[in-house]
Design a protein around this nucleic acid. Structure first.
Length: 291
DNA sequence: CGCCAGGCGGGGG
DNA sequence: CCCCCGCCTGGC
């Protein structure tokens, strides 16, 4: 999985990086704030961790446009999960499925092959929490629209090469908006959930930094998150997986239910997949969603 | 018009 | 404990 970092005219280039496909990573539904840059390139750009990131892909190499090495080590290496050996992860997932089913599983092999460029982004816990509360009973275009409106209304503006963009609003900013302010952004019945989340985070009742500690299990973390009104098992699992680095979390949504019914009619005990279950979930999801 | 979209809370059986 | 309904909104 070794790759090298080089400076280039536009930023930094990552050479020899495998298991990395920007289109898959930013289009597999884990993240709602990145989009194709509309300038003829197939670059993908957005705001993460309060900073602008633009990913350019050119054949074998991936470059982070406008980034310097310090940015890479302090932000993007972690955000993009480049410290994880996905080839090793894939092997472990494959053998876990074989063990659970007691046979060679072609379904997970195909899903891994198709989604081989996916990496789980390490998003900020607070952003993941609000994003997946908004995602419930909703579709991706509208989720993106609502989150964008939320950032424009209550985030901080930052200048980028693509114009003014906005950071994700703080719990304080969202709580200050009140239910009416959040409802005005077309969040519908989720407005009161979003405010409840902000209030619980602000008063310390929900301590996201504490939940992010590796010593806190995914189960304990989910139990804490589900005290928030509007957070059930699915949203909690997504926050664990995408915001709290708890990669064993396995969100079960309608697409995964479809996968289980169609491809594992004899049943699949996904609680036995193990420490990389969340990555397996992404492969299965991606394979089903964009079949 | 009705139905659905990456769920969840609340009520009734 | 499980099942089922309603829910904001936009797109079809």
């Amino acid at each position: 999985m070794s790759y090298s970092i080089a400076k280039c005219d536009s930023g930094i280039t990552l050479l020899g990086l495998t298991n990395f496909d920007a289109a898959q990573i930013f289009d597999c539904g884990q993240c709602f704030r990145f989009n194709a840059v509309s300038d003829g390139t197939s670059d993908i750009a957005g705001i993460a961790r309060g900073r602008y990131l633009r990913v350019h892909t050119d054949g074998q190499s991936v470059s982070l446009v406008g980034a310097c090495e310090d940015d890479f080590h302090s932000l993007w290496e972690t955000f993009l999960s480049l410290d994880t050996d996905y080839a090793a992860v894939d092997d472990e997932i494959t053998s876990a499925f074989d063990t659970i089913l007691g046979r060679e599983d072609e379904v997970i092999r195909r899903a891994i092959k198709r989604g081989s460029g996916i990496r789980i982004l390490r998003q900020q816990p607070w952003e993941a929490l609000i994003s997946f509360i908004i995602s419930q009973n909703n579709n991706i275009p509208r989720i993106k629209k609502i989150i964008s409106a939320l950032c424009e209304a209550y985030g901080e503006p930052i200048d980028t090469p693509d114009g003014v963009m906005h950071t994700f609003p703080t719990p304080d900013a969202i709580a200050g908006a009140g239910v009416d302010g959040i409802f005005a952004l077309k969040t519908g019945f989720r407005a009161k959930y979003i405010i409840d989340a902000a209030n619980r985070v602000l008063c310390g009742e929900c301590d996201l930094d504490a939940l992010a500690k590796p010593s806190v299990s995914a189960e304990d973390s989910a139990a804490q998150l589900m005290k928030i009104n509007g957070v059930g098992p699915k949203v909690a699992a997504c926050v664990n997986l995408f915001g709290l680095s708890k990669i064993s979390a396995f969100p079960v949504d309608v697409w995964i239910k479809r996968v289980l019914a169609r491809h594992y009619p004899e049943g699949l005990d996904y609680t036995r997949i193990g420490r990389y279950a969340g990555i397996a979930q992404q492969y299965l999801f991606y394979n089903e969603r964009w079949e």
